[in-house]
Each structure stands twice: as structure tokens, then as C-alpha cells.
């Protein structure tokens, strides 16, 4: 009971504070129309998932830097991997009458109520990096993020072109049931269909280095001939490298390694020739997000799905790119 009262009191206080805040900073905002303020400055509320990995930290940094560059005022909140925190943050953005809300949903479902509130308040919503599962697509303007199927396909296409007699592929999957794991598997399988290449063993390494290492150790003993390792992220690939080395083989030569993500540690291994090919999964979507935000606030039509600009890296490209990698 006491907790309820304190929560209520805190909410009232917060509402009062934010009311003061918005009253002071933007008069145009209070008219209710989702237009940029008179001074042309757009305010964006961004609800981040949390700081779960290096990828996510890079994602946050990119959004903050791009906002500053684009002259957009950013209100940022960190949900610490909890949906209720994100919902609270979005509600407070609605009360503050920001011009546009962007967020990376922690989970896929349970957003309808709060998104409806945003819609009623005439505040456009942009999803980044992860999608929501809702029948009502009018709840958000657009979804900006990676196409995981395409990433898997790129990996498969490269292998097809550079197989060099390789046939047997082992796959290190991400966390069972996670969207990137399902889609990267599908894309890769589609790409290598109809060729000599086939996946002879596949297991989940939970996106972690120790997982990748342990699974690879077992594969090296139970699968008679392994030509290629396809790992759903860099970390599992790095674990696999350790296992391959311990088996007395040379990673990148005796066994080809393909991974997805292109974080710094992965790129270092790629530049050293221990990984052969990395498909980028780009966390630096800040610039694209700010462009979209400007368009949405100006009332322009935007496509409902925008794919992040992503590339791929070979060993040579990694050497030139590596000094610029921040994450």
C-alpha cells in the first residue's frame, strides 16, 4: 500500500516537473500538432533497451552523436532490459509532448496500449533494430533495422562464390528461438540450396564465446570432415577459433569461418586471417534514424520498413576498416 502511494506521488511529481519543462522549452509542442517547434528544433524521445553488449553501447553512442549532429534534441532513457521501464519512458515522453518517439522494443508483444496513447497524442513512433508483433501497423510509422534473413543470405552467397571445393558446413546458431538466429539460419540455407554445400551439423552456442567453443570442440570430434564454420555472431566464431586451434588445425585455412556482426574483436580476427568473411550487422543507425525522424515530423511519407545500410568484410577490407571500428 505504502509502495502504491509513493509510486503515485512520484508519478504526480514527475508529471508536474515535465509539465514545467515542456511549458518552458517549447510552446509549439503544447498546441498538440506534431510539428517541429518554431525554432525548427525537433525533440526526440528515445527508449533504449539497456546496455547488454558492445553492440548495444555502439548503438546508443551512434544515436546520441547523430542527434547532436542533426540538431535534434534527444531525450534518452535506458530501460535496463525491462519492458515496464520502456513503457514508463514512452509515457513520460508523451506527457512531455516530444515531436517523435523512437525505441528498440525489449520484447515483441505488449505494446499496443502505450502505442495507442502515442497515436492519440499525435506523436509519431519509429521502431529501431527490433520489431513489435502487433496487428495494427498504424501504431508506428516505420521500422528501421537490420534484415537478418538478408545477412544469412549474404554469408551463403559469399561461401557459394568462394567455396573452393568445400562441402561440409557446421553451423553455430544463436539463442534458440531468437529472431536473429532463426532468420540468419534461414537466409543461409536458402542461399546454399542447390549447391554441393550442406550443413552437416548445427547446434546453438547461445551467442557466447564459451558456447561456440564447447559446441565446436564436440563437432571436431563427431563430424568426420568439417570445411566451413558458419557462426551467427562474431563471439561464437571467436570461440570456434580457439577450439580449432586446440585441435591442431589452422582456423581460416584448414577450416573456413564465416560470421555475422563485425564487432571489433571479430574484425581483428578477420584482419589476422583467422576468420574469412564477416557480414556486418550495423548498430550505427543514428544518421538514418535522424533523417527518418525529420521526414516523419515534417509529415512526409516514409516506407514502413527501412533496412539499415550494411556491408560485408573480407580480410583485406577488414585491415583498412579496423582502425575506425569503435565497438
Amino acid at each position: 500500500m505504502l509502495k502504491k502511494i509513493t509510486t503515485a506521488a512520484a508519478a504526480v511529481l514527475l508529471a508536474a516537473l515535465t509539465a514545467c519543462g515542456s511549458g518552458g522549452s517549447g510552446d509549439a509542442g503544447s498546441s498538440g500538432a506534431p510539428k517541429a517547434n518554431d525554432d525548427g528544433k525537433i525533440t526526440m524521445g528515445f527508449a533504449q533497451v539497456g546496455a547488454e553488449s558492445g553492440w548495444r553501447t555502439a548503438n546508443t553512442k551512434s544515436i546520441q552523436e547523430s542527434a547532436e549532429k542533426a540538431g535534434i534534441e534527444l531525450k534518452f532513457s535506458d530501460a535496463q532490459q525491462k519492458q515496464e521501464n520502456q513503457i514508463k519512458a514512452i509515457r513520460s515522453y508523451i506527457q512531455q509532448k516530444v515531436d517523435v518517439i523512437a525505441f528498440s522494443p525489449v520484447v515483441e508483444t505488449g505494446w499496443d496500449a502505450v502505442l495507442l496513447e502515442a497515436k492519440r497524442a499525435n506523436i509519431p513512433v519509429i521502431l529501431t533494430d527490433r520489431a513489435v508483433d502487433s496487428d495494427d501497423t498504424s501504431l508506428y510509422k516505420t521500422f528501421l533495422g537490420s534484415d537478418f534473413v538478408e545477412e544469412g543470405k549474404k554469408a551463403g552467397e559469399w561461401l557459394k562464390a568462394n567455396a573452393g571445393g568445400a562441402k561440409n558446413v557446421v553451423e553455430l546458431q544463436g539463442t534458440t528461438g531468437a529472431a536473429p538466429a532463426i532468420d540468419r539460419k534461414k537466409g543461409f540455407e536458402d542461399a546454399i540450396q542447390g549447391t554441393d554445400l550442406k550443413i552437416v551439423a548445427t547446434q546453438t552456442g547461445d551467442f557466447t564465446r564459451s558456447g561456440g567453443k564447447q559446441v565446436m570442440e564436440a563437432f571436431l570430434k563427431s563430424v568426420p570432415q568439417i570445411d566451413v564454420v558458419y557462426a551467427h555472431n562474431d563471439d561464437m566464431g571467436l570461440g570456434a577459433i580457439e577450439a580449432i586451434k586446440a585441435a591442431g588445425k589452422v582456423p581460416g585455412k584448414d577450416i573456413k569461418i564465416i560470421t555475422v556482426d563485425a564487432v571489433k574483436d571479430g574484425m581483428t580476427a578477420l584482419a589476422a586471417g583467422e576468420i574469412n568473411f564477416i557480414v556486418e550487422c550495423n548498430p550505427l543507425l543514428g544518421d538514418q534514424l535522424m533523417d527518418l525522424a525529420k521526414k516523419v515530423v515534417a509529415g512526409e511519407e516514409v516506407p514502413p520498413r527501412v533496412v539499415t545500410e550494411e556491408t560485408t568484410f573480407t580480410s583485406e577490407q577488414a585491415k583498412t576498416e579496423l582502425p575506425n571500428r569503435k565497438y
Partner: peptide, 13 residues
């Protein structure tokens, strides 16, 4: 655990 992969992963170790 961390020395096995020469890395510390606070989330998953």
C-alpha cells in the same frame, strides 16, 4: 570460464 575463451563476458559467464 573466462580464461578458457580469454575474455570476460559479464552477461553470460
Amino acid at each position: 570460464i573466462s580464461s578458457n575463451v580469454s575474455a570476460a563476458d559479464a552477461n553470460n559467464a
